[in-house]
Design a protein around this nucleic acid. Structure first.
Length: 467
RNA sequence: GGCUCGUUCGUCUAGUGGUUAGGACUCCAGGUUUUCAUCCUGGCAACAGGAGUUCGAUUCUCCUACGGGCUACCA
């Protein structure tokens, strides 16, 4: 049987890193077994749900490359089906109307210091209920959960999880508002059933909801899907990942210059591993090697350092063309007045030592514009008494080169240094500095080749004048 | 408080009833390099604690500690 899985975010905020990982695991599992990966927008909390967020989440999913099958499913559109299911439960006596107000219950909770619903309306007579209804009192609808025995399920990651039924509250199925709006657990159960979901892959924070949903499946006589709960992602201090830990949204990572390939790779390895030492994987390879059995039970701490490393590994093996496309996604102006061929060469020169495309952009300025100023501290450091005169003699030699390529440049430079008995650092450092403004970067002769003879002369002459 | 889940280097993890407990990131030290943020080599660094089972436990069991999640008319 082909698996059908779903990623079910609520549109109350942008897609965050934890959600992206849940989506990824769903996607990997579906693709691995040629199943379907569906997206369901859980917007039953109308107060907090926003179309803006729905669109943002879908955009982020697309950006990550996690394409879903069919149209995304909007939960609120299925409301009549949710209602009729509740009616069915009411009719069969498996659910009941509860006239206790929230305030009332809060009071009782405070008094008894117990969080449990006291069951006030669980076994009321038909007469009592009718009396309230005739007075048009608002009521919510609760599931009549069993009092004895226990409910359990076999989680693919956590194993058997069981809870005594006595511990499970008669939870609410529908709110007491005018619409009798259905609540999460009911809605999820109905939709998972209607969508023929075979495997529910979601965060570990849903384990206790799972028990409630199973009770619902049982009350409705529906078959229960397989459950796969994923460990949480924690912030650096071991607490749940939140804004306090810095960026949590997928969009922020996009803006920071991370690419889907590296981000996905890192996220996959948070709580999972292929059982080998292989660490750098593209999406296809992740699908190939993915296995539910290798999922960790322990929650994992998000580590930006490792993300940087993985991201850098991907960046250095990607084609300049692909990197350029990704850069266009965040900065349309970058390199825009230059030929593509030149830009691609710039990327090829820089990519192996960068961790993100933003970093690449930030370190590329000297390929596109001359230096406006020279850092005094560096000058003091590297500019010796005879530096200017050495440079002048070097210029005379180097401008005569016909073939302006890194091999010939290196050749001639080495000869020059030998001839005048000059050390590498004494010449190369100043050249790098006046060309780039910094003392590190790609091999100098390759920079010189790419920049071209004219720019080289211009920058050296300018520097000799100014410094 | 109740329920539930978890605990191997700082972090992500591999692993077994007998191992020098392996790898990766970070950090540190060398090397390469005109330079470095690339690359190479090396180093630091862990089985939460206690009891039990056992010839032997990091591995199995129990307890404790610590941590996470849930405990809504949120999802």
């Amino acid at each position: 049987m082909k698996p059908i899985v779903r990623f079910a975010p609520s549109p109350t905020g942008e897609l965050h890193i934890g959600g992206a990982r849940v989506a990824l695991f769903n996607y990997l599992f579906a693709k691995k077994y040629s199943g379907e990966f569906l997206v369901r927008i859980e917007d039953t909390d109308l107060q907090r749900s926003k179309n803006k967020y729905r669109d943002q989440i879908c955009d982020s999913l697309k950006w990550l490359g996690l394409k879903w099958n069919r149209d995304s499913f909007i939960q609120s559109k299925n409301i009549s089906r949710h209602r009729s299911t509740i009616d069915q439960l009411l009719l069969s006596g498996k659910a009941y109307k509860c006239f206790a107000t929230k305030e009332e219950l809060d009071l009782i909770r405070k008094k008894t210091n117990s969080y449990a619903y006291p069951g006030t309306w669980r076994n009321r007579s038909q007469k009592d209920i009718l009396k309230q209804e005739n007075k048009s009192k608002p009521y919510s609808i609760r599931l009549k959960t069993p009092e004895k025995g226990e409910t359990s399920f076999l989680d693919k990651v956590y194993g058997r999880i069981s809870v005594k039924n006595a511990e499970i509250d008669d939870f609410i199925l529908a709110r007491s508002d005018a619409n009798k709006s259905p609540v999460y657990n009911l809605v999820v159960t109905v939709d998972d059933h209607d969508m023929n979901i075979t495997h529910v892959i979601r965060g570990e924070d849903h384990i206790s909801n799972t028990i409630k949903q199973i009770l619902l499946f049982q009350s409705l006589g529906w078959s229960i899907p397989q459950y796969v709960h994923l460990p949480m992602i924690l912030g650096s201090n071991g607490e749940r990942l939140s804004k306090r830990h810095g960026a949590t949204g997928v969009q922020s990572y996009q803006k920071m210059g991370y690419q889907p390939e590296g981000l996905l790779n890192y996220l996959a390895f948070l709580g999972w591993n292929p059982g080998t030492n292989e660490e750098i994987m593209k999406l296809d390879r992740l699908i190939e090697t993915f296995d539910l059995d290798q999922i960790q039970k322990k929650s994992a701490i998000f580590d930006e350092k490792k993300l940087n490393w993985i991201s850098g590994q991907h960046l250095s093996t990607q084609s300049a063309k692909q990197i350029f496309d990704d850069i266009k996604g965040i900065d349309t102006k970058w390199g825009s007045s230059y030929h593509d061929k030149y830009i691609l060469s710039v990327i090829d020169l820089l990519k192996s030592r960068m961790n993100s495309i933003v970093q690449l952009i930030d370190n590329s300025s000297y390929f596109f514009e001359d230096l406006a100023t020279y850092d005094k501290n560096i000058i003091n450091d590297i500019w010796k008494k005879d530096t200017s005169s050495v440079l002048e003699s070097y210029m005379k030699v180097i401008v005569k080169i016909d073939e302006w390529n890194s091999y010939d440049l290196e050749d001639h430079t080495k000869n020059f240094m030998k001839q005048y008995d000059i050390g590498f650092g004494k010449l190369m450092k100043p050249i790098r500095f006046i060309l780039c403004g910094v003392l590190n970067g790609p091999p100098l002769f390759e920079i010189m080749e790419l920049l071209g003879k004219d720019i080289f002369i211009k920058r050296v002459e300018n520097a000799l004048e100014v410094i």
